[in-house]
Design a protein around this nucleic acid. Sequence first.
DNA 1: ATTAATGCAAATGCTTTGCACGTGA
DNA 2: TCACGTGCAAAGCATTTGCATTAAT
Lengths: 152, 152
Amino acid sequence: MEAKEALHKFEDFLKKKTLRVTEPRKEVLVQAWKTHSHFTAEEMYDWVKDGGGKASRATVYRTLGLLVEGGFLAAIERGQGQVLYEHILGHRHHDHMICLGCSSILEFRNQEIEALQEQEAAQSGFHMVHHTLTLEGYCSSCWQKFRPELDE
Amino acid sequence: MEAKEALHKFEDFLKKKTLRVTEPRKEVLVQAWKTHSHFTAEEMYDWVKDGGGKASRATVYRTLGLLVEGGFLAAIERGQGQVLYEHILGHRHHDHMICLGCSSILEFRNQEIEALQEQEAAQSGFHMVHHTLTLEGYCSSCWQKFRPELDE
DNA sequence: ATTAATGCAAATGCTTTGCACGTGA
DNA sequence: TCACGTGCAAAGCATTTGCATTAAT
């Protein structure tokens, strides 16, 4: 989805919730759409600042929360309290593989797995709102590099 | 697995790594085996304290890290920097459904999903070390309770 | 006897909050 | 207008760390 379209939807979202369409809020959304990769709250804060925009750290955090709530961004949790965001509107759902060596993130989709999850939830009478599937390990190049010392 | 057996393995693990078998370390392991549920670092600290044992908060954190490293405990990440631990040695791997209403945790196992994950990783040349699959939603009783207001 | 492990308290890092001021509806 | 959103700096919270002390080997 284009940034323009996302922005439009965000404005609709805000209006529907009787929240105000403000400069800082728009700025955060626009920046989120400028990358196709994952980012942290702190990175977002830097982008807004460097982009000449106005939004304090507090507002960045508040807005990221809103964007997740509205389904514009997904928050993916890494260990150690680290949270990464990515824009998801208009993207098909996907899951992640995270490399323990270089921290790179591979995305993958698997419809079969999704279906089995739904089935698993239904069996327990559980109403799934969303899910997270993360594989941790080593990408092929890190595996080459680290394998020897991991086997010790 | 019994606490006694787990303790024995933990001592072996420490010796193999030339780490010392200390009272605080043993105390944390024993407490971890006293529950069959999930717990936080803070809860562990309280248990140790109330159990008359000795282990400062710092040592609890340090020891939990060791136990995860050794495969005695699994750390499951919830949002907001909340980390839960559970003992896994001798338990088959399982995944979680977390209720957004009452925070209860259901466990499930699905061998098909596991197999598909392996397959997915292999396809990308990714060497999976472990994975986390968490479904978030509402357990059947909370769904009854909250559904009306969620539909608003 | 050594040297790692511990406890304490201070430090860290990320995130949230209180409140006076600015601003969108 | 005027309530809501913002910025700032302070507060929170879970976790980590430095260092003197204690205890395992």
